[in-house]
Design a protein around this nucleic acid. Structure first.
Lengths: 328, 328
DNA sequence: ATGAAAGCGCTAACAC
DNA sequence: GTGTTAGCGCTTTCAT
């Protein structure tokens, strides 16, 4: 079964190829009657447009690239869902790449995107390097940075939760419950998000005159033994865990040491899936990956559609809320 | 900075566009000297080929589509890594879609893939329906089905672990430890994988004369209360959990009921990430998503490159092994 | 070893 | 409201 093109379809309908093309794309010039006739035939003969020919001709792909640093972040499915939903409604397609937290791979992908003639890019950065984004600017391809906002550093538009504020609020939750012996569990120090959440964490402790030292902070994948030692040598009654991945890897350690279920309070920042799966459920500052997806794609499309100029930088924040699970 | 094409590049080098094209694709007719000159210029002027024009002309995209039923399966990152790695080495690109376990969406995606002129498809089915795959066959686009093998039903090539054997082996592990009061935790019944693992589970119990009833099986996302009641009313000493998702949702319930840490034995089938994160670590039949990715993409490319005919059906199995974590 | 020219399937400017 | 036609950027005969 050979695939048929617009030409063959036109012949079958005794129409001109261009009319068929117009009918299929709802051009106002075409009479509704013909339009329906064409569309019916397109379905009947299972006409599949050659997208490469179309994009080639239109010199634009109607595609938005989504470049993400890793597959593992818990909220990614929701994020993609949100982006995809919005883009689909607006008639755009989505194409997803993963940089695997590798700057060079990120650069490669960006080149690739340019070859794909993408109309815009939503990117979660692999690192704090942003020089290579210049390429996109130069080519006139709009983009927004999500999640790892670096809004205080770089002149690019960003969408994220307010990491610092979220961390502040999370820390405050512990302090208000009078849990002032706090252990902080954070990710890699050269990740912007880590720095921002760390800032909020420290600021809150400072504001409330809670003493703490660098000893009370664990970075990166927590080392089982190191963390265990700290837990044994210090009477922590509160734990701040920066994200879902760290929650999952820290949780068994706490469990083993009978810290949970127990009277230690835990707070985390999460999209809300993992914390309610665990037992007991974990209080958290909740944000929605889906919402982030909607916001960032809507924002990007404003640039894509030239409703907004490239040079108008803006920093958008998705909402977050405290979700409490407390045994009392 | 306007993007330059092969024509402009040719002008800059006082060459014909066709020569530039040939040089860039290492055509043997081109003199090495010219080839290097062209390649150097391509880099200097940051020439990015217009892929749509290329694919359009070649009537093939060099792209392999990967269609997956959900983002959430734990081994997906590894699977994609494996596929991507192999495809990259072979000069192919990868494009990923998610059907979200929705048959209609799966159909849409397949149509989409045909519009993209993909050279082949690796698909994890959303359901047990396979009629719509006929389209691919008709269009001469080779594909392999991964993970949810339905090899005993359908005349298509598949790559998966041997679900029945893995489940059998897992169940045997419990029986050999003399844990014969077994609770089975399974996914959706209309999923092929569930049926296959269920078959292995039941067969093993039968072979070892272990009595059990349908009461001892839980399907779908385990209902917190239902599962809890069963655990309380029956002295289970062994639990078979079909996969990672179910392990994660069952684990807190077991924890709450103080079944773990305890003398109940748990076995699961997993790619090995989650079971060793939990405490205590969970014994499991381990398979590698990465390996599955390599095997399936290598297998598919044999068809794509016409080294193998469409009609030669084959069923490949990735290896799996027992990983034990036992307190004794 | 290189140049000239045709054409992939589609869309849009221009005719009528 | 529909037909005619040119051309997007690239590869690939064919010619030299």
């Amino acid at each position: 079964m050979k695939r048929l093109g617009i030409k063959e379809l036109a012949k079958l309908l005794s129409l001109n190829p261009s009319s068929v093309s117009r009918a299929l794309s709802d051009h106002p010039d075409i009479k509704p009657e013909t339009r329906e006739r064409v569309k019916a035939a397109a379905i009947e003969f299972n006409y599949q447009p050659n997208l490469h020919a179309r994009f080639f001709r239109k010199r634009s792909s109607g595609l938005i690239a989504v470049i993400l640093p890793s597959y593992n972040m818990f909220f990614i499915p929701n994020l993609l869902d949100g982006i995809n939903e919005h883009l689909k409604n607006e008639g755009y397609g989505m194409i997803v790449f993963f940089s695997n937290l590798d700057l060079n791979k990120e650069k490669e992908i960006i080149n690739h995107c340019m070859s794909w003639l993408v109309d815009g890019v939503i990117i979660g950065l692999a690192s704090s390097h942003t020089d290579h984004l210049r390429q996109l600017t130069d080519a006139g391809i709009p983009f927004v940075i999500i999640d790892n906002s670096s809004d205080y550093v770089d002149p690019y538009s960003t969408v994220s939760i307010d990491n610092k504020a979220a961390a502040y609020r999370a820390t405050e939750y512990l302090i208000k419950k009078d849990k002032k012996n706090i252990l902080g569990v954070f990710g890699s120090q050269n990740h912007i998000k880590t720095q921002q959440r760390l800032d909020g964490f420290k600021l809150c402790l400072l504001d409330h005159n809670v003493t703490f030292s660098e000893y009370d902070i664990v970075y990166n994948e927590p080392d089982f033994n190191k963390l265990e030692n700290k837990l044994r040598s210090t009477p922590y009654n509160g734990i701040f865990i920066m994200n879902d991945e760290l929650l999952l890897s820290t949780y068994p350690i706490l469990l083993k040491n009978r810290q949970i279920p127990g009277n230690i309070s835990i707070i985390t920042i999460s999209d809300g899936v993992l914390p309610i799966q665990l037992f007991p459920k974990i209080s958290h500052i909740r944000y929605s990956g889906y919402e982030l997806g909607i916001i960032s794609s809507a924002f990007l499309l404003k640039y894509v559609k030239k409703l907004k100029s490239h040079s108008e930088i803006e920093h958008l924040y998705a909402s977050s809320e405290l979700v409490e699970f407390d045994p009392d």
